[in-house]
Amino acid sequence: AFVMDKLLRKIGLSGRSIVPMLIGFGCTVPGVMASRTLPSERDRKMTILLTPFMSCSAKLPIYGFFTAAFFPGRGGLIMVALYFLGILVGILMALLSKRTIFKGEAVPFVMELPNYRMPGIQNVAHLLWDKAKDFLQRAFTVIFLATIVVWFLQTFDFQLNVVADSQNSILAVIAGVISPLFVPLGFGDWRVSTALIAGFMAKESVVSTLSVLFGSTEQLLVALTPLAVASLLVFCLLYTPCVAAIASIRRELGGKWAVGVVVGQCVIAWVCALLVRGLGLAMGIIG
């Protein structure tokens, strides 16, 4: 926090904000909750909104799956590029936020190190139960309801009949409706749209859903081009975090901010993916 304070002040934050952001590379949920340690309400809100741009570990299966299938031998380079792209987009959004909705300067940086003592078991247990109960009451209810909704959409058709093929489900129909939005990005296939919707529940679901819908890697290779996959990877990096993260943001900031994160990150992801595809086409890459 001390080392990063000078750099983070240039984008409107204090050095304390680096801790939630670093945690966000593992999972956005504890990253959002770690922002409670920030003394300034402005810094806390800004940090929470920037943390989802840090690529969480749940996105690694997506990166690994597509790089192995479409970019063999260059997976490490592509994954590092994606991580740095998320950081770059986060910095740009911080600079924009600093000049718009979060005007002002971060609070002065003062770090006080307490006297370290062994914690009492009773105090730790009480604190863990208090935080766990708070999460179960406020965030898990949202996650549970969203899980039921996605399961229902994947299992039934509009006549409320159980479908044998997920292509006939309500979720597939909805994905078919929104798939034209992704045509300019190069991945307008309804199966990809379905996987992205499933990714709202958990980012790991993107790979498993694609595996079920396409059946084999060969069919995926036929349906998508390397340029389309590059655009898709950027979109997966930046679009809305999972429902657990959104529930945590709603718990910390309220429903309006949570909806703003979902809509805002989807728009940012769409624009960035379009720029990647446009840059690829300008360089003569067939996509």
Rank of each mutant, 00 (worst) to 15 (best):
W257T: 13
A258R: 00
F214L: 10
Q154I: 00
I101P: 07
I11F: 03
A223L: 03
G264K: 08
N168Q: 14
G287A: 13
L92Y: 09
V19W: 13
F71C: 07
M283N: 12
V192L: 09
Y239V: 00
W129A: 11
F214K: 10
R251Q: 14
A68Y: 10
Y239H: 14
R117H: 13
A58E: 02
F200K: 07
L88K: 09
V162Q: 14
C242H: 02
I91F: 13
C266I: 14
F2D: 15
V177S: 04
T67R: 05
L232D: 00
L210H: 05
S17W: 01
F65L: 11
S193T: 07
L153N: 04
L160H: 13
S57K: 07
N161W: 10
L253M: 15
F200R: 04
G176M: 09
S208E: 15
G86E: 01
N168K: 13
F214T: 09
G26P: 07
P72Y: 03
A1Y: 11
L127Y: 13
G215F: 05
C272W: 10
V173E: 15
D165R: 10
E252L: 05
K59P: 00
V89T: 05
T209P: 09
I285K: 11
N161Y: 09
L8I: 01
T225N: 07
T28Q: 10
I286Q: 15
L238A: 00
L171Y: 06
L233A: 03
A175Y: 08
A245V: 02
I178W: 07
L96Q: 11
K98T: 02
F109W: 08
M21Q: 12
L237G: 00
A34H: 00
S179Q: 11
M4R: 09
I18T: 12
G199D: 04
P180C: 05
S216M: 04
V222S: 11
P61H: 07
L128D: 09
M283D: 08
L275P: 03
M54R: 01
K6D: 11
V124W: 12
V107S: 14
R9Q: 13
S211K: 15
V263G: 06
P180I: 07
F140L: 15
Q265D: 10
E105M: 09
S14D: 15
P52G: 04
D157E: 06
L50K: 01
F187E: 06
C266Y: 10
I143D: 03
L60T: 08
F66A: 02
T209V: 13
L88Q: 05
I101N: 12
G15F: 05
S208N: 12
D5I: 02
